[in-house]
């Protein structure tokens, strides 16, 4: 699914962030990446989505070296992001936010509106919340919309950067359970950057990134 081969990255070629990281991610599995601040976790997600490019090494997604692809194409067809601060269009409704993502990824899909609605309902966004501008939704509700937006695209990879960072513990737990459940249901590869022990314990694998190097891989699979 995703093969990261000996990837290094530095800002302005001076401050090294990642040094020779190699790791593979598989479809249908969930991963958490943890480590101290500045260890390169979010940078690794940005590299996988083509937002930034590595100084050296290669990233392969579904047998495509993403160095040869446009970043927008990668995000339109391969990876979807879930952000800590949701990054939704605040003036659009929950449904409209998800619809836009679906239209960009699958512009010719029939009956997409129904699919969007069903997905949002699955995530606990009921009919009345669907038509509310997201600025009036709670943090938990906004993150559910963010997850729906990532899932609706049909992209095989979900990249979540501290998805529960702005949520209280109970809501964070609910949201995480939903994310992991739907990741499995939709057979996605989900990679979550987190500081949360709770998330680490819920993902199939957890990876420690320290000082730009991958130090440890643990599994919760029995």
């Amino acid at each position: 699914m995703i093969d990261i081969k000996n990837v290094s990255f530095s800002y302005d070629r001076k401050r090294s962030i990642l040094q020779g990281v190699s790791v593979s991610f598989s479809q249908g599995k969930t991963y958490s990446i943890f480590g101290p601040s500045g260890s390169g976790k979010s940078t690794l997600l940005a590299l996988m989505g083509g937002i930034i490019t590595p100084d050296s090494g290669e990233i392969w997604i579904n047998d495509h070296n993403i160095a040869n692809l446009d970043g927008r194409l990668i995000r339109r067809t391969m990876v979807s992001y879930i952000f800590q601060d949701y990054l939704l269009f605040p003036f659009l409704t929950a449904q409209e936010n998800v619809e836009i993502a679906r239209e960009i990824s699958n512009p010719h899909e029939n009956n997409g509106g129904e699919k969007t609605r069903k997905l949002l309902n699955e995530l606990g966004i009921n009919e009345s919340l669907l038509r509310k501008q997201v600025r009036y939704l709670s943090g938990g509700e906004q993150q559910r919309v963010g997850i729906a937006r990532a899932l609706v695209t049909g992209n095989p990879v979900l990249l979540a950067d501290e998805p529960t960072g702005n949520l209280d513990k109970a809501t964070a737990n609910d949201v995480m359970q939903l994310l992991i459940k739907l990741t499995k249901e939709y057979n996605k590869c989900c990679i979550i950057v987190t500081h949360s022990e709770m998330i680490r314990s819920q993902t199939d694998y957890s990876l420690l990134l320290d000082n730009g190097c991958l130090k440890q891989v643990e599994t919760n699979l029995k």
Partner: peptide, 14 residues
């Protein structure tokens, strides 16, 4: 700028 950023994250063309 933020909205344009969101479009870019979603993979919308230039």
């Amino acid at each position: 700028i933020r909205d344009i950023g969101i479009f870019e994250v979603l993979g919308e063309s230039y």
